[in-house]
């Protein structure tokens, strides 16, 4: 990676964006009940989305950024060590947020109710780890 690339925000770095798209595609293959998945920067910019689309709506990235930050603030406040993941379970599906290990990025994935929470947790962990290693 060049110095220029290191200074470039992840959502504007074509290398990172490309790898993020591929990681999300793998997540979709591993979990057919995946509805939407987004890789976002800690400050709420969308890096990549699955399925791909041209819409400029970044609402999910912004909300995931806020929720991830709040969850990490709670973990800090209660001195619970390192945060793992956040799950929102709803009647029609669930949302999972997970930090990309060692990166200032987050994986947000929305699964329908056919997916088990356990599988969502395990596949998202693998994809986030592989993505981090590939950047």
């Amino acid at each position: 990676m060049t110095d220029t690339a290191e200074l470039m925000p992840p959502h504007r770095d074509p290398h990172t964006v490309d790898i993020a798209h591929r990681a999300l595609a793998v997540l979709g293959e591993l979990s057919p009940s995946l509805g939407i998945a987004v890789v976002l920067t800690d400050d709420g910019f969308e890096v990549a989305r699955h399925p791909r689309r041209d819409s400029a709506d970044q609402r999910l990235a912004s909300m995931a950024s806020s929720l991830q930050a709040l969850s990490e603030a709670i973990v800090r406040e209660l001195r619970l060590g390192a945060p793992g993941y956040v799950i929102i379970e709803a009647t029609e599906g669930h949302v999972l947020l997970r930090r990309v290990p060692g990166r200032q990025m987050v994986l947000a994935a929305v699964f329908d109710s056919d997916e088990s929470v356990g599988k969502a947790i395990s596949v998202s962990r693998k994809v986030a780890e592989d993505f981090s290693a590939a950047i």
Partner: peptide, 19 residues
């Protein structure tokens, strides 16, 4: 709830509040 600020064009500071 501060995160690393990647939008330095809007404000040149290290972190920004996200929640």
């Amino acid at each position: 709830t501060e995160a690393a600020n990647t939008d330095r064009e809007t404000a040149d500071k290290e972190t920004t509040t996200v929640a």
